[in-house]
Design a protein around this nucleic acid. Structure first.
Length: 638
RNA sequence: GGGCUCGUAGCUCAGCUGGAUAGAGCACCUCCCUUCUAAGGAGGCGGUCUCAGGUUCGAAUCCUGACGGGCUCACCA
């Protein structure tokens, strides 16, 4: 942990703070001491902003800078010189200092990483899919983000438990089940379709029936609409007839858009009267009553989905330490709500539904239990959170990796937990990330524009293969090694593409760009690593660092290396793998410039050659560590 | 309509708690493999940081308003 005090910023800051009264006449705030990178076109390695001190010293920025500069140069031997330019104090630091920094970096195999388990235990939830359809592009962003944040928190010393909540109950599950029972064709043995007899991945098979339900559901609703249009209301109530009439009449005189909206309402009305929806609802009631037949169907179809997900997760390279199922936690949620009702946190309306009043917090009233006593989403989330803190006594907080469409939900959830008196509610954080858009617009399952996760991952790996074969750096690798390499490159590219953008922001997924190898991409970073490894193999041995001169290109790399611990720290504070990606990209650019213009192996001065090898070795090391934080592997050769 | 959020180069994105002449990548145009992997490097082109006010030594960054996207306000999850 001595890297922190090693940084020149810290040395200067400490010195200024402890001598503030003699330099400035008064004590100064720590925040007044601001450093920044020295501009490229200006001489110097580090810049101190003078403006905050100008008032204190009651002189011009030039004189203030001069005074501070002189003070520091006298006391810090590593400062070679300084220069004040329009309110900025630029220091030039000695080569010896930078070599020492490089030495510090090279001594630490896990440079930038804190002592494992030295900080509180956190749970990171991610993925959390519904069990009625396969994973898609949005889940990829979610999974890569959650996994990466877990790694980043670990690197900062936290013990991390990776988890997901599996959304395995509810009407949507019943829809797939019902469609399968009703519409699956029978084979010659009289069996309905299964993953085994069709060869389909379980999640895909179940997803197909979810889609099938929706199709049949719409068909039936349309038929009902047609009957209504003809004035046939034989099988419907007076109320329904009246509602239809009211809606139809409200269309007159409206514009196209409004009419479309009304038509949608009529369709919804029809949907509510379909026999399919009725059957699905009946199935849900049976499920809640643990009807043996429905339960068997449910466990069977869910197990198909889990098998399918398992394969997808494996390809993604993500895993979980503990799984939670809503079918297990919703009951606990109901109990907690019942208790909260007694203690006055919640209140009951006449129809028996239970609510929480958040109007004092500027929010609305929120339902926590339906009038029929069944659980809603919020109920089970309360239950799950409490369950988790019960399971892990040392748990200090939970990070929920969930899309920003649920910002409101989590705001409410955390408030409810707080009102229920759980002290840990403060340590619950919604890692809210933006949606992934396609060049054609939003992904919509109804319009079939959803990008399937398995297909996309296959595609990027195939592309990686084609492009790697083209370059031809891989002769001598076995077939297995080649397959692993293509996978590593394809997945590395995809992960990097999805992680390099600030998680909070909505992002554009461009299929062509996601498999690009040039520029700010995963393969660009991987290539730099492979190239260094190749260099080190040829160098055979590396000795200890000797005192040498260092070139500007080399110094820039050392400066960037020294920043790594700060980036690891910032990435955790901001829950942002993007900071790690951007840092790595900068490091590679600096290294490539160096690599391209300065000879290494053919350098005749042994000490210089050795220093360049140490530098290269540490760039490779830090790149590998950084990519590890993103869940990306780096190759020895490519 | 209320709440939240975003708006930076042709496109995709960086720009931390306000700090020097706003940066990358892609695309487009020039160059560079008799040095270690050219999946590379050097250079060029490209911006009234959506607009209008305000705060101050200083604003892409903070505040207010407008315009334009997105999300949300379900006894859906």
């Amino acid at each position: 942990m001595n890297w922190k005090t090693n940084k020149m910023e810290e040395i200067i800051k400490d010195l200024l703070l402890s001598n503030a009264t003699s330099v400035f006449g008064v004590q100064v705030d720590e925040n007044a001491i601001q450093f920044q990178k020295t501009r490229k076109d200006v001489e110097g390695d580090l810049t101190l902003v003078i403006f905050p001190f100008v008032k204190l010293l009651k002189t011009s920025p030039a004189e203030a800078g001069e005074k501070i500069g002189r003070f520091l140069k006298e006391r810090i031997k590593e400062i070679d010189s300084f220069e004040v330019i329009s309110g900025f104090l630029n220091f030039t630091i000695s080569d010896k200092f930078w070599l020492k920094q490089l030495n510090t970096v090279s001594k630490d195999a896990k440079f930038g990483f804190a002592e494992p388990n030295s900080r509180p235990t956190l749970m990171v939830e991610y993925s959390s899919p519904n069990t009625n359809k396969p994973l898609h592009l949005g889940h990829l962003r979610n999974n890569f983000l959650g996994y990466s944040v877990a790694e980043i928190l670990k690197a900062n010393g936290h013990k991390v438990i990776k988890t997901q909540i599996i959304n395995d109950r509810g009407i949507h599950i019943c829809k797939s089940m019902l469609a399968w029972e009703k519409f699956s064709p029978l084979n010659e043995k009289g069996e309905r379709e299964t993953p085994a007899n069709t060869g389909l991945k379980g999640d895909k098979l179940v997803g197909n029936y979810y889609v099938r339900f929706d199709q049949e559901f719409n068909k039936e609703a349309n038929e009902i609409c047609n009957e209504w249009e003809k004035g046939n209301f034989d099988n419907f109530s007076e109320d329904t007839h009246a509602e239809f009439k009211r809606l139809t009449e409200s269309k007159t005189g409206k514009d196209e858009k409004a009419i479309a909206g009304i038509d949608a309402k009529i369709k919804d009305l029809a949907k509510n009267h379909t026999s399919l929806l009725q059957e699905a609802k009946e199935m849900l009631v049976k499920w809640e009553a643990r009807d043996p037949q429905v339960y068997l169907l449910w466990t069977t179809m869910n197990s198909w989905v889990y098998d399918g997900f398992e394969k997808t997760y494996k390809t993604m390279g993500v895993d979980f330490d503990k799984l939670y199922y809503e079918s297990d936690t919703f009951l606990l949620g109901k109990d907690i709500v019942t208790e909260g009702l007694k203690s006055g946190v919640f209140f009951k309306k006449e129809d028996g539904s239970v609510w929480i009043d958040l109007t004092d917090e500027g929010l609305d009233e929120k339902l926590v239990l339906r009038s029929d006593g069944t659980a809603v989403y919020m109920t089970q989330d309360v239950g799950t959170a409490v369950d988790r803190f019960g399971d892990y006594k040392d748990l200090s907080g939970i990070v929920y990796t969930v899309g920003n469409e649920q910002d409101y939900h989590f705001k409410v959830l955390f408030l409810i937990l707080e009102k229920l008196g759980f002290s840990w509610s403060d340590n619950c954080f919604h890692l809210s990330y933006g949606m992934v858009d396609l060049p054609s617009g939003k992904m919509k399952s109804r319009e079939g524009t959803v990008v399937d996760a398995d297909e996309l991952m296959d595609e990027v790996v195939n592309q990686a293969e084609a492009m790697t074969q083209e370059r031809g750096h891989i002769e001598g690798l076995s077939e297995d090694e080649k397959t692993a390499l293509f996978r590593l490159i394809g997945m590395g590219g995809l992960k990097y593409y999805l992680l390099k953008v600030d998680p909070k922001k909505r992002m554009m997924f461009n299929p062509e760009e996601s498999i690009e190898l040039n520029g700010n991409t995963g393969p660009f970073i991987q290539y730099a690593h492979a190239r260094i490894k190749s260099l080190l193999r040829k160098a055979r041995s590396i000795g200890a660092l000797k005192e040498t001169a260092i070139l500007p290109e080399e110094k820039e790399i050392i400066k960037q290396l020294v920043e790594f611990p700060t980036v690891v720290d910032e990435a955790a504070k901001n829950y942002s793998p993007a900071l790690v990606a951007n840092y790595s990209f900068e490091l590679v650019k600096l290294y490539n410039t160096f690599y391209q213009s300065i000879p290494i192996l053919i350098e005749e001065d042994d000490d210089l050659k050795n220093m360049r090898l140490v530098l290269s070795e540490n760039v490779a090391k830090v790149l590998k560590l950084a990519m590890q934080l993103l869940g990306i592997e780096v190759p020895e050769r490519m």
